[in-house]
Every structure is written in structure tokens, then in C-alpha cells.
Design a binder for these strands. Structure first.
Lengths: 230, 230
DNA sequence: CGGCGCCTTGACTGGATTCAACCGCAGTGG
DNA sequence: CCACTGCGGTTGAATCCAGTCAAGGCGCCG
């Protein structure tokens, strides 16, 4: 799951053990309350979730989408700051993972040589920061069409990293309403934008799966430079 | 500067020593190149800077604004990911701060008891993440008017933390073009929105300083809940 | 004076939201 | 069995917030 760093055999064993007995959680379940100072560390094993924030009048903004393999709530927060609540978008499988954090923190002689788990968690944080930056650029400076293209490419790359993409086709279990809340659009405009992408032959959607039919074209539209630099 | 955690006397001495001889840097200077894996750790002592990303066609999005006291480039990145480049927005004073990072990393017995400096840097990262989340919500779900109000309140709070606000008045040395690139607006619309805020008696601008004349009203417009929770 | 950076203004355009309605489908219960 | 309901997707029309284009003003400085 957290394939971000080389783990020692016993770290891998611990990871396997921790994720062996996942708990089923329905859609729209809150995994971390907003502002919680000491959330329970968890790993999302199956299903999609998100970090989101609500405005007083009901508007919702999804800050990042969380996919299978992503760690949740590993950072202890000093004060109770509003990082947004973590909520499932689909039915999901989740694991309690306090043991991972403890193991990551122990073992270190001085921190100059950190454990594999600590490195993996650090890397996971880094990736989440990248997704946040991507999100800011999408929302701030891209059109609806570009935003969707960019977001789909990011999803493809992240899902490919956990081996859930086959020939640019992957499961896509969220409604257009959720997509709209992620990309800062209205549902209606989200719908029209998806239709445009389909009409242009760039994506194909069937049931709960999506296929990116022309990744280079999408990348050019979205000005997308994958995670591996320029 | 990094008043985020209690420092030991010698940590404070080191901090003072490191920030004693700042280097002057002109506006529009690049402090960290985009994608740089091992940036030089620095502290912004005076002036404003930002993390930004450019699109291929020249559009610019400012991801976060950096203010006096903020650390820059302290995180070692594994791969060369695009976090955006760090660039000064005004003439600035900057300090090389590698010594701080080394000191923060050493000294730890096991990491269960981290140094004051390490705690401060961790806290600084947390705050930056909050600002990112705020930015996403502003760009995704708020109108121009709300965005500006929200952003000004965030600036006030951050500047107050480093004692640069007097009676809701603080230095505001950036152009409307920069503001526009931060808030995802065009310069023209930025201008009109500022005018509206002035006409409504919410802010007052003279030269390079700004006064928030009605913080509660601004907070209500922007749905702003300061850093200290609800 | 002339040029430049920044702010300002007006007119026009357009991307996106809103409101409202309709459709197809799956689940559900009388 | 089938009306009823709810959800998600789809459409059209009207509206509006924000972008674009273009021009002018003002202060500063060489």
C-alpha cells in the first residue's frame, strides 16, 4: 500500500498484519472530524474518500481526494486547526493503523536514519502536498474543461501507482456532484463539461469506470506534467 | 521569528545568530527553483514572497504567500516534484538557515522528545498546510468579494502573530496584479472588488498600508474562522 | 519631457451559475 | 406486479459574475 519507500521485511509484515482486518464503512461516513487534534491513524484500503470543508451556507469544497492505499490522520496537530473533515465518498474499507505510527516513530537511533515506515509516511505527506498545489492551480487558473482533464490525469497517475489502472481505464465511483465539489463547479456545468470531453473523444465512461482515450491530448489541454518532473 | 514552539535558550541564541546577518534580495528573485530536490533552507526575515506555479501559456497562480518569519525550503524532497518556485514579491531580507535544520535534526534522543526547533518547524509546516486548505476553499467556492475578505483576514492574523499589526492596520506592499494571481482573478476584477470593499467601508488603503475597518463584518462575509478553532 | 508601472474606467463578451423541468433506473412496498 | 419514490444524469433558458480589450490617468524617475 504505502509503496513510497523500501520497507524492511518486518515492517512489511507489520503493514500486512495491520491491513489484514479492514473495517467496512458506508459512504458519507466521517473518518476524521474537522479540527480534531489527535485523530486516529488509519489506512484507506478500499474505496474513495476526501478531505473537505463546508461553508456556513452549505457550500462544500473537497480539498483532496483520497484513494486506496492513502494514509489518513497520521499527523498529530498541535492546536485544533481546521484542516477539514475526512469523509468517505463511497463505501470503503478502513484499517486502524496506530501501530504503524508507533513503529515509524520508534526504532530510530537519532532521526538521521529514519525507519522505512517513517520515510514512507513522509513521502505520503509530500505527495498530498503536491495534490494540494495541483488543486490550487486548477481552481485558480484553469477553465472547467482544463480542470477536469487535469484532475483525471492526476487520478490516473495515483491509481496506477497502486496498480488499479489498466490501459488508461480505471474505476470511477463518484457522482458528478462530488466531482463538482472537488473542482469548484456547479453540477450542471460539471455535467456539460464531461459531455464535451466525451464528444471530443478524450474520455469514455461506462457505468462506474472511465477510460482516458487520449492521454497526450488531455495532458496538453491540462498543461499536466506528471509527478516525475519535466 | 518561528514563535511556534518553546525554544531552549541556546536554540534561541542560534536562531538569533542565524538571522543576524540577513542578505538583501530584490523583488522577483527566485529563492527556490521549481522541482528542486534539495533547496537551501532559508528564513524570510523581511519582505513578502510566495510559492507560485506558471502554466505554459503564462498564466500564474500564487499558491501561498510567505511573510516575514516564515521558513523556506526546509523540506528535503525525495523526487523532484513540482511544488512551485519560491519567489520574492517585494525587496526582501533572507537568511541562510541550514544550521537550524541540522540543529533541529540532531539532539533528539528517540524522536519521542523532539527539539524545540523541530517542533517549531513542524508547526510551521502545519500552518502552511492550513493556508493551502484556505486557499483551496477560497478559489473553489467563494466569490471574488468573499475571497479578498478571507485573504485579508488571514494576512491580518498571520502578521499579528509576528507583531506587525496595529489596530487592524498593516503594511500591504503588493500590487493588485499579485493579488489577482493569488486569488485567481483578473487584474481588472481585482481592482473593482477592492473598490467595492472600500466603498462598503470595510477596508481602507493608503499608500502601501491597509486597514481593516470592520473585522467582524469581513469575517462574516468571508465565513472566516480564525486559526483558533470554532 | 518622456517612459514606465500601477491603478482605474467603460464597453463588450463569455464562461459558469441558477432555476426548473424531465428522464431513466433501481429499490421498495402496497 | 406495478405504482411510487429517490437519486443521478441531462437539458434549456435566463442571468450574472468575471474576463477581455482598450484606453486614459497619475505618480515617479531617469
Amino acid at each position: 500500500m504505502s509503496g513510497y519507500a523500501r520497507l524492511t521485511p518486518d515492517e512489511e509484515a507489520l503493514l500486512r498484519q495491520v491491513t489484514a482486518r479492514p473495517v467496512a464503512v458506508p459512504a458519507r461516513a466521517e473518518l476524521v472530524r474537522d479540527g480534531e487534534a489527535a485523530p486516529r491513524p488509519q489506512v484507506l484500503v478500499e474505496g474513495w474518500a476526501c478531505r473537505q470543508r463546508l461553508l456556513a451556507d452549505g457550500r462544500r469544497q473537497i480539498v483532496v481526494v483520497l484513494l486506496p492505499g492513502d494514509p489518513i490522520g497520521f499527523d498529530l496537530r498541535r492546536r485544533s486547526l481546521s484542516f477539514g473533515s475526512v469523509t468517505t465518498l463511497t463505501p470503503a474499507l478502513v484499517c486502524e493503523a496506530g501501530a504503524l505510527r508507533e513503529r515509524a516513530a520508534s526504532r530510530g537511533t537519532p532521526p538521521d536514519r529514519e525507519t522505512g515506515l517513517a520515510a514512507a509516511l513522509r513521502q505520503a505527506r509530500e505527495m498530498e502536498e503536491i495534490w494540494l498545489v495541483n488543486q490550487v492551480v486548477r481552481l485558480g487558473r484553469q477553465t472547467a474543461y482544463e480542470r477536469v482533464a487535469h484532475f483525471l490525469l492526476e487520478l490516473r497517475e495515483r491509481l496506477a501507482a497502486v496498480d488499479r489502472v489498466q490501459e488508461n481505464r480505471f474505476s470511477f465511483p463518484i457522482t458528478q456532484e462530488v466531482l463538482a465539489d472537488a473542482l469548484g463547479l456547479s453540477v450542471v456545468h460539471m455535467n456539460r463539461t464531461m459531455q464535451q470531453l466525451r464528444r471530443d473523444g478524450l474520455v469514455e465512461q461506462r457505468a462506474t469506470a472511465i477510460t482516458l482515450r487520449d492521454v497526450p491530448a488531455l495532458a496538453s489541454i491540462a498543461d499536466y506534467a506528471g509527478a516525475h518532473g519535466p
